[in-house]
């Protein structure tokens, strides 16, 4: 049946709503082949269609139309697949900053990596341009602040952390700290610290 593989692609998307599975090169190239085949068949039929209509009084137009619809549908599915992956990729940018975690990077296609770096750099440029002095980092202050300090637990051995007031402290695994929220928000999102509620 036409478009079955494209449907598989969409199903894969649906199953992994918030995560990025490996870029499915195999399935995509199968769909590409299906589209190519449909196009060739259409071209052949279009050539004979004119003759057969005159000679045998048979028209191939309905066949052509159905194939064309299948081609369009396949392409739509391909684009939807790519678009939704980009969306996921953008969320990752907001979460982890401009450097891709290696385990995510392994699942991406080259084009997606390119997109990520472009997106990231235009975002940085935009953030630098806000206001008069040096820009604003929009990736912090994601939640409305409730209190100035929060209690955090360190999940991994992180090492030295320097605070904006100049003092430094050592983040060791399983140690607890009482820190200004602005300082550790990013670390919490990266999974270094854990907010103790």
């Amino acid at each position: 049946m036409f478009g079955e593989k494209a449907y598989l692609l969409i199903k894969e998307l649906d199953r992994n709503r918030d995560s990025l599975p490996p870029y499915n090169t195999e399935l995509l190239s199968e769909i590409h082949n299906e589209v190519k085949q449909l196009v060739t068949e259409n071209q052949e039929d279009a050539n004979v269609s004119e003759q057969s209509r005159l000679v045998e009084n048979v028209s191939y137009v309905p066949t052509l139309k159905i194939r064309h619809a299948a081609i369009k549908r396949n392409i739509r599915c391909i684009l939807a697949y790519h678009y939704n992956r980009l969306k996921c990729l953008k969320t990752i940018r907001w979460q982890f900053g401009s450097i891709l975690p290696p385990e995510v990077k392994a699942n991406l296609s080259q084009a997606e990596i390119d997109f990520f770096s472009k997106y990231s750099s235009s975002l940085m440029q935009y953030m630098r341009g806000i206001g008069d002095d040096g820009g604003v980092n929009l990736a912090v202050n994601l939640k409305p602040p409730k209190s100035l300090y929060i209690e955090v637990r360190c999940v991994v051995d992180y090492g030295q952390l320097e605070l904006t007031d100049g003092s430094a402290l050592l983040l060791k695994k399983n140690s607890r700290h009482h820190l200004p929220r602005t300082e550790c928000e990013e670390l919490i999102r990266q999974g270094v610290l854990e907010h103790v509620v």
């Binding site: 190239s29 590409h32 589209v35 190519k36 196009v39 684009l79 790519h82 084009a111 997109f115």
Partner: peptide
Amino acid sequence: HFDNATMFY
């Protein structure tokens, strides 16, 4: 990115 995805034909 989209052009890239559909460049195969």
